[in-house]
């Protein structure tokens, strides 16, 4: 039997995370529900943000969940991919902007 760290079936068990600490889990899920409710941003807009963040944090569970959620919310494939590119650009930019630090250090130690 093959073993992997990530099992798609585990996503269904997320609700049972309170088994080891119910009060904290209850607070988390209550907070989670409020975060994704309609607010100044719509639930639809939040779904697309979640999809982008899921890619930035590279969470396979979140990517599965929010890919479906975004489809259900009526996003096109193009819109979803643009959101992923936003995540990629920020991640790429975050790497590249550290190049300034590298340049600073190089200039500091160079003659």
């Amino acid at each position: 039997m093959s073993q992997t760290y990530y099992n798609p079936e585990d996503l269904k068990k997320f609700g049972g995370i309170g088994e080891f600490s119910k009060p904290l889990a209850d607070q988390f899920f209550s907070y989670y529900g409020q975060v994704f409710a309609e607010g100044e941003l719509s639930a639809r807009e939040k779904s697309l943000i979640a999809l982008a963040v899921a890619h930035a944090v590279q969470c396979p569970y979140c990517i599965d969940a929010y890919s479906t959620d975004a489809l259900e919310k009526g996003y096109t494939e193009g819109q979803m991919m643009e959101a992923v590119h936003v995540a990629a650009a920020i991640r790429g930019g975050a790497t590249l902007v550290h190049g300034v630090q590298m340049m600073n250090k190089v200039k500091e130690v160079s003659m």
Binding site: S42, R44, T68, L71, E72, K73, G74
Partner: peptide, 14 residues
Amino acid sequence: NPAGAFLPAPQQTL
């Protein structure tokens, strides 16, 4: 109706 294995969004939003 959804073009795949997913449920529809709220009717009003769509």
